[in-house]
Amino acid sequence: MKKYDIIEHTADIGIKAYGKNLSECFANAAVGMFDIISDTKKIKPVGEYEISLKSDTVEELLVDWLSKLLTVSDINNILFGKFDVSVDEEKCELNANVYGENFDSERHTVGKEIKAVTYHILEVNKEKGYVQVLFDI
């Protein structure tokens, strides 16, 4: 099954990520984001990181989740490629184990620099099994 589609935009870029439940949608959104930044296929699961989040709404949880990955990646110079995500929709909570390694310009693809995750065209659609979000490039 297709993990995500790229949403094209004049100045920026977005993704629509699919899954049979929100946990899978959130994980595939992260894959899409790191495919924009680099290429997840080339990122080895060398290190593991735990992420726990709580937000006010499930849409905000999606933005917070991707923002958090972006922040951790940027601060530590790490690329992530594998995401085990568990989303509790009722409590608006997320727990994840994410895997990745230090950026290596020899081995890793250099893609686009994502400045931020935005609230534009933000959507979490559990019934139809997708989430979508736009990145500020």
Binding site: D56, E60, D64, S67, T71, D74, K115, A116, L122, D136
Partner: peptide, 25 residues
């Protein structure tokens, strides 16, 4: 970018707190 992300979140809360009707989130 991080300052923007952090404060946009705070502003999002403000919108709910002050109950603004906005044409665009």
């Amino acid at each position: 970018h991080q300052i923007c992300t952090d404060h946009l979140k705070e502003m999002e809360r403000a919108v709910r707190k002050y109950n603004f009707q906005l044409p665009d989130r």
